[in-house]
Computed example of a mutant assay.
Amino acid sequence: MKQINLIALLLFCIGTTNTFAQKNKKMDIIAYYTGDDKLINEYEVNKLNQIIFSFCHLKDGKLSVDSPKDSTTIKYLVSLKASNPQLKIILSLGGWGGCEPCSAAFSTAEGRLTFAKSVKEVSDYFKVDGLDLDWEYPAIEGLPGHLFQAADKPNFTELIKILRSTLGKKYELSFAAGGFQKCLDESIDWKGVAPFVNRINIMSYDLVNGYSTVTGHHTPLYSTNPKEESTDRAVEFLLKQGIPAEKLVIGGAFYTRTWKNVANVNNGLYQSGEHIQGVPFKSYADTYTEANGWKYFWDDKAKAAYWYNEKEKTFATGDNLTSIKAKAEYAKSKKLGGIMFWELPLDSPRDGMVNTIYQVKIAK
């Protein structure tokens, strides 16, 4: 009888643990941020779990904060933690065009150790919670002219390892990964780095980018054909590599990519064109209006928004409230680590993209 009761108690505990695990499973909301110490006050920081200050750079192989203004911003962001206990402040290295010396600097064990020690020194000084590596990209071409080499792939793994051993277990360590197939296939040793990082921030945007002469969805949730890049395609690839779901964070784009000289065929989708400056989400309501000649379209298969201006022969693609809600629901249903986005200052301070993600997060 005692044995039966013991088994029953054990089963109850297992069930309870699973229930709590599901109830406590949180979907982190992660904001990349390039603003200053004043702009952040316009936004609802209480709805964020991480602010990733963007960007720091390499100077003589060490992590460097670029200016006194950036130092002031970082210190102010850290001060926000006092009234937002859920918040972590992360420093990001690099960015598009911001990691030119990375391949050379991280090519030796000495260089990697020098960098890791500098990260600890800077982090201790500012009292930040972690580092996000935004090297675009190890082993494959990023910004034209930047050094990349095959050795970057194993060197990146060794960099992650030395960072973890130098910084300790409590330190948040993540990296931004291109969400396109070439990066997924060639840039990172996924099994090698996964045990040492807290998160992989998948840049599931710019999948059709400024170098493209053909329009398309730049940040779709799903692929509409086998060759099309998408958020889901990247996630499924990484899950098959054995990456735990809770370490995967998908990306939202708080901006459009836009092309001109686009023929009025298929409402401009998958047509040739010339890439031009896009629009931040906070300007959508004033820009993409019928009065301005724009029509809004929704691709229900891709779960992606796009706009076409027949008069101006202009096409735009990007996340909106509908698509970002779908992404947040996807992240929640897949039990992913969360959703990140580029970037907070592009959002409306109230009732915008962050709020939409947050409402999905807290919904039962």
Rank of each mutant, 00 (worst) to 15 (best):
V235H: 03
Y270F: 15
F237Q: 03
N264D: 15
S204D: 04
N225C: 15
A263C: 11
M203H: 05
S212A: 13
I250A: 03
E236A: 14
V193A: 06
M203P: 00
T213C: 04
H275G: 06
F237I: 03
G192K: 11
N198F: 02
I243W: 10
Y222A: 11
L238M: 14
I276C: 07
L248H: 01
A253N: 11
V214P: 14
H218W: 04
K247P: 05
S272Q: 10
I202N: 01
A263Y: 11
N198K: 06
E229A: 15
G192S: 10
R233T: 13
V214W: 04
Y270W: 13
Y211A: 09
S204I: 14
V193G: 01
N201V: 11
G273A: 02
H217P: 11
Y255H: 11
H217Q: 09
P244E: 12
N198G: 09
L239A: 10
S212C: 08
V208Y: 02
R257Q: 05
Q271F: 06
N225Q: 08
R199P: 00
P195C: 07
Q271A: 07
H275E: 14
G251Q: 00
V214A: 06
V265I: 13
T215Y: 10
L207V: 14
P220H: 00
V214E: 15
N266P: 15
G216A: 09
I202Y: 01
L239G: 04
M203K: 05
S212M: 04
V208H: 09
T231A: 11
M203V: 06
G242T: 02
G273I: 02
Y222N: 14
I276G: 08
T256S: 13
G210Y: 05
T256M: 05
T231E: 00
A245H: 07
E246Y: 07
P244R: 07
L248N: 00
F254A: 12
N264R: 10
I276N: 10
N225L: 11
A245Y: 09
I276W: 07
T215C: 05
N201K: 03
N266K: 15
T231H: 06
F237L: 10
L269S: 12
A234D: 04
N225P: 08
W190V: 02
Y222S: 09
N209R: 06
K240D: 07
W259F: 09
V249P: 00
V249L: 04
I243V: 13
N225M: 11
E228A: 15
N264A: 11
K247I: 08
H218P: 05
V197Y: 00
V208P: 08
I202G: 00
N267F: 03
P244I: 06
F196E: 05
P195Y: 08
I200D: 01
L239E: 12
V208F: 05
E236G: 02
V249M: 01
A253M: 07
A263I: 03
